[in-house]
Design a protein around this nucleic acid. Structure first.
Lengths: 239, 239, 239, 239
DNA sequence: GTGGTCTAGACCACG
DNA sequence: GTGGTCTAGACCACC
């Protein structure tokens, strides 16, 4: 039988560096809503004095937060740092590092990417409003127009955005974030691999949209999966 | 006997922001495999001299890489910076920032978390080896033993690790990474919300494992979904 | 008019040193009661590993806690650190340092000492049980016997303890602590000043006790004050 | 009669712990006045060499002295250790430890706190100069202004300082020290207990000050006691 | 085996 | 660049 008295419960200790404490405070204020996107942080010198740390510590904290996509520093007029609008760039970067540096085979990425996209489509089929569908349609239209015109630079913007807009029909921000990150990552991998993927992207997307509008989740998923698997096979071929 | 592994090849830095160039070099060496997890970078001073940059540049680069979860700095002798084992902490942090700072409702997180865990279970049911199952079982066993003993600090380690080990049975590193991140994030949210979640975690997990061993994906998914929904309801109650 | 949105609230940052974190943990466990007087802490080396810090950090923490009178370290096999019984030594030391190092005139000490002792006597007159009085009497008796025998070393123990036992009749631990500290401090000051104070201590104490038993607070206070003022004048003479 | 020849005074060899010897030297210099508040000690490395001990010994000594509130270490250039201004922090800490760690009921603290504050008021009524009263008034004024402005962080500084400034009117440093310590301790206890104490502190204090200026000790004491008892009841409610 | 001491080396912070 | 902080590892004295 165990002793009645609770045994002392010692937790490991992690030394906190000055800049980490600074980061923590800013993160907290952003989380609380007292700092909002567009707000400006105090000038370095003032901020340093306010927090009782050196300017170096402030600078390192800014570097860290900039990396995390939380603030944006701009030099020149009034310099200082602004709170950024949230976007999924940081997640993309983090997942990308894992794949690039961690020797993760690309089919691990594409497999999960397909699964997540499927799940997003299923969710969207249940929740999407006509407005959502129209947003998707607009994106396809523009991409098509630009393809015809041969303006591939701008076309790629819309081609890329498709998955984000699709995911937004789920009305789940986390889903949007992950789908966007994995799509972006796949795109990067493909760009490095085969310079000219070429396939009837527009047609497939129109098909998927039609099936989703008909709330035919299984059909839409089947169509999308076939397309993505075709696309991803280009990557496998390289390994 | 000399090491077979090629030694990292650092080149002097040219203009451009110094710390970025440093980052780039290290990232490259890691990607190439000349720098492996556990390897030690040269001491600050020495490294700075080697690359012909200031110590500040080295420090800022380390900050950046530490942020990305690529290196880990520690104090004291043998301090310097180590290449870290790849883990999903950076992704967790990035997703966590989005949720914490971006006013994303917690049910967006839990919904995707459930979906991903389900998909992981389905994949695992197809691919898991007996070895995978045994790893899961060992984790459950340890958690149970430590629960009985009242050593909650160490218990929580195993309780938390469960989802990672479960996901590893999919043999897909990206899946592991995402499942781990979302589980960790949910755990953090729960910890902030209700101080005493308590439920028969061990029992549920044994059940899921049994069903997976019988390759009954639908059953395992049903059991797990019920458990997670119960858990997540604690969060909804708070909003 | 002030803005509706709450302005960000940045708090100054204090770097936490490793040993402070260790101290904090031990203090917490003692406060929670999971560590009790007599308990043994893990050996330095083991403890260091458990907390993820170096042995030096543990040692510095021990130094700090030893100073605060919380633990006591022993050498040799089976050594390690023990949690100490609470006593007022630390307070005595702290007050003593203030006086010794801060150029505080000794009459500041004696003045407060008299006031506190008076207040203790008043409280005791209201609350003391017969048991308390008997404890005081026993102390006086022993001191008297040892005075007669000429065993001054042991006599001083009882002479010194008198004020603590007197204060214990207030049933207020803080009062005990302060009275004891100031008495002890005065004794030290006197010892340095005049080697032979000599006066009819025993007689005075018997008188005070008799008056207290009669619940004559005013009388007891008058008697005690007269005695202490006589005593303290020895110190004034020196300045 | 004792022998004229001084008897050889063998002190136990006992290899006094190195850091204790260092402490002793510094304490001695401070007591002698050769080291004054604000003075800087030599850098660790240099000091160690000067005294012929290791840096570890110096560090442990610093720890001990820092604990006793005698020196203060700070980072950065001009780092080293400074001799601190005398303050009652060490006493507060020592008394606080006794209460926190020794299971002393909070009403023991509050009871003595009230008694001591009363006695301080009585002493002050006899000795305070107009200058003392003005210092008290300034403190009340500032606290009131900051309350109106909603700057609670700085307000609390003045609210807390009140008792110290009040006690300084006694012109007895020991009284200042004890009143400050017990007030601070009560404040800590209250902060842990009830998040919103709120009451008309400013009004009460102005009243007390008015009565003290009229040298009406009994009145001032009555007013103050009523206020403190009201405050302390918040603590009792929790037990 | 445990505390006490010391050394060398490195990060972290400030100016 | 200086200086505080932390660490790893070693040796000693004690029981």
């Amino acid at each position: 039988m165990a002793t009645l008295r609770p045994s002392p419960n010692f937790a490991p200790i992690k030394a906190k560096r000055a800049f980490e404490a600074v980061c923590e405070q800013i993160r907290r204020e952003v989380a609380l809503g007292t700092l909002k996107p567009g707000d400006r942080l105090p000038p370095e010198r003032e901020f340093a004095e306010q927090l009782g740390v050196s300017r170096t510590a402030i600078r390192e904290a800014m570097r860290s937060l900039e990396n995390a996509g939380i603030v944006q520093c701009q030099q020149g007029m009034g310099g200082s740092a602004f709170i950024r609008e949230r976007d999924s760039m940081a997640v993309t970067q983090a997942v990308g590092d894992m794949v690039m540096l961690g020797q993760i085979p690309s089919h691990s990425v594409t497999e999960v990417r397909i699964i997540l996209t499927e799940q997003a489509i299923r969710m969207a089929c249940e929740r999407a409003t006509e407005e959502d569908f129209m947003a998707i349609e607009r994106d396809i239209d523009r991409a098509e127009q630009l393809t015809v015109r041969g303006d591939f630079t701008r076309r790629n913007t819309y081609i890329t955005e498709f998955y984000r807009i699709l995911a937004q029909a789920t009305h789940n921000q986390v889903m949007v974030m992950l789908v966007e990150s994995l799509s972006e990552l796949t795109r990067t991998l493909l760009a490095k691999a085969s310079p000219v993927p070429r396939s009837d992207v527009i047609g497939v997307r129109r098909n998927v949209l039609k099936l989703m509008r008909a709330r035919d989740a299984d059909g839409a998923v089947r169509e999308m999966r076939a397309h993505l698997e075709r696309l991803h096979r280009l990557l496998e071929a390289q390994d």
